[in-house]
Amino acid sequence: MSNPSTVKTRASGPTRLRRRTRVSEFALETLIRVLGFSTIGFVLLIFLFLLREGLPAFFQVSPAALFSTHWYPTYGFFGTLPLILGSLLVTLLAIVIALPLGVATAVFVREVAPQWTREILKPVIEVLAGVPSVVLGFFGMTFVAPLVREVLGAPTGLTAFSGALILAYMALPTIITVAEDALDSVPRSLRDAGLAMGATRWQTIWRVVVPGARSGILTAVMLGMGRAIGETMAVMMVTGNAAVMPTSLVSLFRPIRTMTATIAAEMGEVARGSTHYHMLFGIGIILFILTFLINLAAASAIFQKKRKGGLR
């Protein structure tokens, strides 16, 4: 320390080595930073390319025609309303089915079931999350639709209802997992307080724990909805694909067509650069914005919970 020159000569070899590792380390850390930011880039790229191919449609088709009630692309009718309503109908119906099932299952798994039951149930629900949507669609076509047809006595089993049923089960793993996390994050002290007041476990669950998990359950619903509205293959195979306006309750048991199915079914046959081609990308833009808003809402609920984290 008192003699810097000796230190310098002794350390010259290792120092040079260290500098080289420092340079390569700097390069690596820069790369990692770039990779970290890459997701923002990908989202922007996706939106950019959707706009590039889809925007022309909004200039070629007037806004009034865009939201008219007829979708006959071969005759130049590009009314997206039946498709948007079709998507909304199927999605909402799916959530109406999946929400009570999902929350009840989450409560059962998390609060009621004994350990061994839980260890059987969790993997089974995980398996459902892993089943490819085309397999569920295939199952829906060959097994559920005939069942629906027989029960309803309808001319076809490929209906909005069959689609919603399949979608509900596809959304269930998401809803159950997120709702379970929400129940789990309700502090123990609240449960104890409920029980100490003389409430039964059942009363504590419904009056204390579930209300306490409200925001998390809302997140679960939003995420499930995002999943359902964007689902393509299963919906295309099961809903019958008729682009008609759902006008009354009967429409639930008639064929219907969603935005996603329209893109998937028609993109293969369309001429590149035609209005129809741009229009399909235009539907993609609508879907992108819709799911973005839904996920933003879900994420803001998630972030809210995190910000309060210190107190829990």
Binding site: T39, V43, I46, L50, L223, G230, T232, M267, T291
Partner: peptide, 13 residues
């Protein structure tokens, strides 16, 4: 957001 984008929109992209 990436996790929520519909698979068919990835196809378009």
């Amino acid at each position: 957001n990436l996790a929520g984008i519909p698979s068919i929109v990835y196809g378009l992209f």
